[in-house]
Design a protein around this nucleic acid. Structure first.
Lengths: 238, 238
DNA sequence: CGCTATGATTTGTCTAGTTGTATAGTAGTT
DNA sequence: AACTACTATACAACTAGACAAATCATAGCG
């Protein structure tokens, strides 16, 4: 569905390379074959892009020798779109939260396995929305073992913070024992909550948190809006 | 009585062909014209069937080349010190890398800042493709300071492994000092390399690796195919 | 030292085949 | 009348492969 031909994209990329100093005046560009490989296209497509640059006078090819930069680009369109960037640590502490629903029900097989329970055991399920500057950042679902944390719903309802709610229920500290990340396309529900169009890229995070004794206390899934979120993995180790 | 459309029948037939191994991953399907002839329909009818398979991620078309069978999902764990080869082999896949291009050029502003250099300083740029069982998992670009690692290109060209190449150039060990992750839509170049359709969700990772003294030795960007890669963040401590 | 021969590399050109897109038309159904 | 499914045709964009022509590095030789 790319309405702009590939060769134009490549021509723009090369123009940017020259404009930003990655190739200076007089430098030889990579060979057509190399450019074709890096851009994943046929050599002829690269040739068409180079022909455009040559037409503009940016480069001049020499048969048998290579393609050389003749002048720096004076004007090239800057394709950088303005994006909102929200840095979030992998542990998942996020400023604002909105409770979407808070129910207690039976655990399914996946949840039971993650929390070290038997299928059918009661779990608290907390569906919510993470916000920053009024913008929706992520939708999440946290699943807690109800038997171990009977009073969690009330604690959660008060301030929404998982950390504080857990602390009030006797879990002073907890650590992430695994996190799995992948990129997906937003489904209709996620798109509506995150103010995205359906199919927009979202960052899926599935993780398990455990108390210091190693017992799982939370099984959480988070779906971040790819357009607005950059996950920063910080290495605070010992 | 609404009969099932012809294109759905064709799509189902092709799906069965793939599922039962008559077309393996990476194989090229018969051309649209051939399929149209064998099914006795117009090319556009075949195209609609193929579009459905592409939407499902079963196949990916390449203009001018043909329609190819895509790969299935894999699992790609990363930890702080864990390296690429060990990981994939741990999950039962055979890892590999393919060099797309390997050039030395001037650093732009961003690269210079990341590697603690001055803009215009020479850098080695390694564009490559990460593979598992021969199927593309990610495209990456690694940028190295050329002054500090003059012999890196030859070392890289031999086996493609960044870790071993760095070791041969005197960098025995290195650690990630920052990683940023986000979800994006695949652009045309990424889609072609990763055998995806344009707009499919991909996982962007930008990171800096430094030697034990804290000097940056690599500025790397990686784009994972969201459909078939899950990053697993292990606990570090190791 | 200077010159040439040779082979590898790189750009230029050509032919053929395949997918992507646009437009227009037909038959059947609602 | 409007919609859906399909047909028909034409062209654009890209791939694939082969070969020619210019360049460059190097080895050999006078």
């Amino acid at each position: 569905m790319s309405q702009t031909p590939i060769w134009k994209t490549i021509a723009l990329a090369l123009t940017a390379d020259i404009a930003e100093g990655r190739f200076a005046t007089g430098d030889r560009l990579p060979t057509e074959a190399q450019l074709a490989a890096t851009h994943g296209v046929n050599r002829h497509t690269v040739r068409r892009a180079l022909a455009e640059l040559a037409r503009q006078g940016l480069v001049h090819p020499r048969r048998g020798a290579g393609v050389f930069v003749s002048a720096a680009a004076t004007d090239y369109p800057i394709g950088k779109r303005v994006r909102y960037h929200q840095n979030i640590s992998a542990s998942g502490k996020i400023p604002g939260k909105r409770v979407l629903s808070l129910i207690t029900r039976a655990a399914d097989k996946t949840e039971a396995e993650a929390l070290n329970l038997a299928p059918g055991d009661p779990v608290h399920v907390y569906d919510g929305l993470s916000l920053a500057d009024g913008q929706p950042i992520a939708v999440f679902q946290s699943v807690f073992p109800a038997a171990r944390l009977p009073d969690l719903p009330e604690a959660l309802a008060e301030n929404g913070s998982v950390t504080r709610a857990l602390r009030r229920c006797g879990v002073a500290d907890y650590t992430r024992i695994s996190t799995r990340l992948t990129a997906r396309a937003a489904d209709a529900v996620q798109a509506r909550h995150l103010h995205l169009i359906e199919g927009a890229p979202v960052l899926h995070s599935v993780g398990i948190n455990a108390d210091p004794q190693g017992h799982p206390v939370e099984y959480g899934k988070t779906v971040f809006a790819g357009e607005r979120v950059t996950l920063t993995l910080d290495d605070d180790h010992g």
